[in-house]
Structures are given as C-alpha cells and as structure tokens.
C-alpha cells in the first residue's frame, strides 16, 4: 500500500488546517478549526497569493506531489473545500 492510499481525511484535514492557520497569521490550535470554517471570515483570512507556499507545505507534510494547477480556477469557500481538492490531487498523483 502506498503512502497516498494510507491517507484518510483526518490526516489531510489536519495538514490543510495547519497551513490555513499559518496563512491567516493566526496562532490557534488546529483542532479548534472545523471543516465548515470560512476561508475568508472572522477567523481565517486565506489569501490566494499564498497558494504556492501552501502547496509545497502540504506536499511536504503528506509526502506527496500535487498537480501544479491544483488550486487554479476553483472556488474555495470553507476549509472542507480545500481538503476535498487536496484529497483529489493526492489520488490523481498516485
């Protein structure tokens, strides 16, 4: 079984939450962020300028290679949207 096959949503969600917290210049516990938390709202302020950094951070943490255009042309409203796309990207990279 490859590393990608071992991913579950919890592991990917944790990696995604950590990068969106960093991108929002916050110091909060990832466990306090739910998947329904808006990416641009009272708590998180994720800016698409940081997508390259987020991509390489997620790749590093999960030990996968994601497609370059993973985030391009898509609309992300909540944390769960990003988790979905990273899971799809991880699947596609197998």
């Amino acid at each position: 079984m490859t590393a990608v096959e071992q991913f579950d949503r919890v592991a990917v969600a944790d990696a995604v939450k950590r990068v969106v917290i960093a991108e929002s210049r916050l110091s909060v516990d990832p466990a306090t962020i739910t998947e329904t938390e808006p990416l641009v709202g009272e708590l998180l302020r994720v800016n698409s300028l940081g997508f390259v950094g987020m991509l390489v951070q997620i790749e590093d943490v999960l030990d996968i290679t994601l497609p370059d255009d993973l985030f391009v042309g898509r609309t992300f409203k909540v944390v769960g949207d990003l988790v979905d796309v990273v899971l799809q990207g991880a699947e596609a990279s197998r």
Binding site: A22, L49, G53, V56
Partner: peptide, 13 residues
C-alpha cells in the same frame, strides 16, 4: 520572500 507558508517551508525543508 512571500507568504507565511512559503517562508515556513523554506525554514523547515
């Protein structure tokens, strides 16, 4: 130079 994620990646990787 850039977003926190990019800088953090460079710092740790």
């Amino acid at each position: 130079r850039g977003s926190p994620s990019l800088i953090e990646y460079c710092r740790t990787a």
